[in-house]
Design a protein around this nucleic acid. Sequence first.
DNA 1: AAAAGTGCCAACCGCCGAGTT
DNA 2: CAACTCGGCGGTTGGCACTTT
Length: 285
Amino acid sequence: MGRSPCCDKYGVRKGAWTPEEDQLLVQYIKKHGCGSWRTLPKNAGLLRCGKSCRLRWINYLRPDIKRGPFTGEEESKIIQLHGMLGNRWAAIASHLSGRTDNEIKNYWNTHLKKRSLHSGHSLEAQEPSFGPRQSDMKSESSSVRHVIQWEKARVEAEKRLSMELETSCLNHCSKTNTHSDCFLRLWHSEVGQSFRMITEKKAESESPTSQSSIAFANLAIEQVSSCNPKLEGGTAGSDSGSHEFLDASDSALKLLLDMHDDSVGFFEGLEQTENFHGHLHDRYD
DNA sequence: AAAAGTGCCAACCGCCGAGTT
DNA sequence: CAACTCGGCGGTTGGCACTTT
């Protein structure tokens, strides 16, 4: 299927934006709001492609853009999130208020990537070992630690599941609900769903609560302990399943990052969650 | 002082997925 | 269901500023 160009190539200005163009764009968006990027340039009296207008607004003119150098905290957050999410700049940017995906991408490519290469190891390919490492734990903020733990567990589980699926296919065995996919099944199950619902509600109400995380941890312990084969929704492995999974983990990631440190008692400080951690360890090792 | 090299970042390009017709 | 539009995304690049030779 062919693609039409996003805009008429002729009569459209390119290159750096002038202050006059910026002013026209800002005034128009202030008055009419953003959206309908295709028709916006014409309505605003700009000889620009709609995409160009959108980019200019998002990356430069938006009022909530944070200017200035990246702080150390932002930097370490970028490194950690990049380790988990890869080059998903938009997803990374969503965790750094006021920073755009373009800015983060540029910063990574000009500063952090170089630094990682220089130090002789890749920041982007962190070892997928499950569980926290002491050296890391000290330097990371608590909220980010939890996210990393979850993501590591998820990635590891997906990896193991796909390996097991391969093995089971080779052996003409249709049984795939072995212990390694407990985490994934758990996430897809009503337990995981309820956790996501609770945390979403939490995010709406802005009332910090540790109950949701504790509740999920408790339910998780039960489920993992029994490794209930009746758990529904084990779609990970198929493409669509993976995408759903990524979306789900993204929202959870955001919510977890948004949680106050004290409210996230997932893996530490709780005896039960240690058990949960231990259960997973036992299963995966 | 000037040419060459390097770094940085705004902006462009092309692809993709979702939604619409 | 195919064709198409649109918004969004990540990779790449052009050009300016700064540094080095």
